[in-house]
Design a protein around this nucleic acid. Structure first.
Lengths: 347, 347
DNA sequence: CGGCGTCGGTGTATCGTTTTACCACTCGAA
DNA sequence: TTCGAGTGGTAAAACGATACACCGACGCCG
């Protein structure tokens, strides 16, 4: 059916070995003229190497596993698209894996990827433990983590992420500058790494301003582990709770944009107006942030650059920079969901 | 490194052939006791068949290609997640392909998938032409299309989709019942199949109500072919245009939820309020529809069922039902973005 | 009693590529 | 003259699973 290396070899009047050498860039092993002849034969026959055969022989495969919590979350969807686009340039395919934040599922994915010869994995998991990851690193898998700052492990895990603490500080300072003094922080139940850092940044900014971080105003949790599908729903519930309490906040920092969108919905549920009565700031700057009402003030993650850096590291000689991590700069994007502290401060 | 079929055979004191037979469910070729022995050996050794070797021999691979316009669009993201989840149950992996609505890219994807032995493809493309698809069908690829009603082709292409015309009629009738008489339709520039059908349903509903479908109120287009990344932006622009014109509509049917979200933003841009001054209805019922302000009235596509049906068909004996297509029932979900025609009708 | 079908398996070629070893030959230096 | 090191290439053995042909033993029927 498909054209094989033998046919190419016959057409070019060389042995299959030589064709293989051409294919793998071992130019020094043949005369330039021979190489040209082989290349012409390849082009003429429209030959494409059989990946299965190649993988069987070498054990390697031109594929990278992309493990995300849920591609239904627009943030991960956008990230996945960038990753696929970058990987394609290096002729790598992307295998999609939705972990749904289930540690067992995540391990099983890694196990299967490894068994299938997929040696490069981009792991976007916020699970706090990395014990299961270390196992695969030791076996020789190249893994790059996304958003796992500070978790080196042994052997060290390379990590690409935005400076979450700084991002949260940018968000918090913005609210402080607008005059807000009672700030709340809303996040999911999952003890994800990025949440810890963002919360840390939030607290730090408050601390610098000489304000206490009241425990009552930090809302982490609500529903189960499925933190993505109903992140927004959790945010909504949290906002309703916070605003119904005796001493409600006047501004809310959400752990990400989906939460923020939920928070906005919750704010409206209790009859208040986002941006006027209550300020809300998100994190990520997903495409939707500019389209919701009101448009969301948020902290942008440089997604295309992050995807590029991640894939580049993953496909470039993974061994060279083991443990090298990248921290990207977040950027505050001010839109309409934040505004100066209302004149008539509510009790 | 990894455990092979030979090792299992040795452990179970049978030949590799027998292990293979066990693996492939050819129970009739061995004694139950033998099968049990082999299964025990498999479990004891933690054996996993090498997919590359299997593929090399059989030509088949347990993978399905998922071609979507852009997984950054939450609708496709959610769909992708459902597909992956269903495929996983049959031990199939999902290869992600973002066509970005580029016909050349789409063809190239099919070409590569075919060359890589991926025989099952779920094609979510709204490109009107299916000539390039027919080529692959003839070569023996199993392809199921999503949202391509009515386009059988030769050989016929199996299609799964919602009844787009009916959905648009539900949306339109809902607006008519609310008293609206000047309705607009907003869509992207791509002459996608589903857009044609939805527009048809829109026109039909108007026709039945004895109303003319004014050309000026049908807005298809705007930006380039990248209809997903800025669908919302296009909707926004279209809404501004429509509402700025002399005889503006009082209600707008959007081709999908992303457009609708954009339209809502556009409505606000010109100082009007969605749900009170202008009614907007979307299509798809993405998760966000319930979270925007105002919550979006929309036509729900039964996504989980559609994903299940698609994958089931794709992995089930593809040959049996060639040309068999499935049309799912849409459902109107009324939320806050639609309301009765305002008392004070604007000019 | 001879022939035939079925049962429960096994032996072996094969898929298409990579890789290791090796080849014949030439040229230069010792 | 002989040894050694390139040059430009080839032959053949893997890689791990599958499928086809075939095998001996047994039972059954005419």
């Amino acid at each position: 059916m498909a054209v094989t290396i033998q046919q190419v070899a016959r057409a070019a009047r060389v042995s299959p070995s030589t064709v293989s050498n051409v294919l793998n860039g071992r130019d020094s092993r043949m005369l330039p003229a021979t190489r040209v002849r082989v290349e012409e034969a390849i082009a003429a026959l429209g030959y494409r190497p059989n990946r299965a055969a190649r993988q069987l022989r070498t054990g390697r495969i031109q594929m990278l596993g992309l493990v995300v919590p849920s591609v239904a979350n627009p943030f991960w969807g956008a990230f996945a698209q960038h990753v696929e686009s970058v990987a394609l340039r290096s002729d790598f395919r992307v295998l999609l894996c939705n972990s749904e934040r289930d540690p067992a599922r995540e391990s099983e994915y890694l196990e299967e990827l490894w068994a299938d010869g997929v040696g490069s994995v981009l792991l976007c998991s916020s699970l706090p433990s990395i014990a299961h990851v270390e196992t695969f690193l030791r076996r020789g898998m190249t893994i790059v983590a996304f958003d796992r700052t500070g978790q080196l492990g042994d052997p060290p895990l390379t990590n690409i992420s935005v400076d979450n603490s700084l991002g949260a500080q940018l968000a918090t300072n913005h609210l402080l500058e607008l005059g807000h003094r009672r700030l709340a922080f809303v996040s999911g139940t999952v003890a994800s790494v990025n949440r810890q850092e963002r919360l840390h940044g939030f607290r730090r900014a408050l601390d610098r301003a000489g304000l206490p971080a009241e425990a009552a105003l930090v809302r982490c949790g609500g529903n189960g582990r499925d933190g993505d599908r109903d992140a927004a729903a959790a945010g909504r519930a949290a906002a309703r709770e916070l605003l119904g309490a005796a001493s409600a906040p006047t501004a809310i920092v959400a752990n990400n944009d989906m939460f923020a969108i939920g928070v906005c919905a919750g704010v409206r549920d209790v009859g208040l107006e986002v941006g006027r009565d209550i300020s809300v700031v998100g994190f990520d700057d997903i495409a939707l942030a500019d389209l919701t009402f009101p448009a969301l003030t948020t902290v942008r993650q440089p997604l295309p650059e992050m995807a590029a850096a991640t894939v580049e590291y993953l496909l470039g000689s993974g061994a060279t920079g083991v443990g090298r991590s990248v921290l990207m700069r977040p950027e505050l994007v001010v839109r309409a969901s934040t505004g100066p502290l209302a004149r008539t401060v509510r009790q």
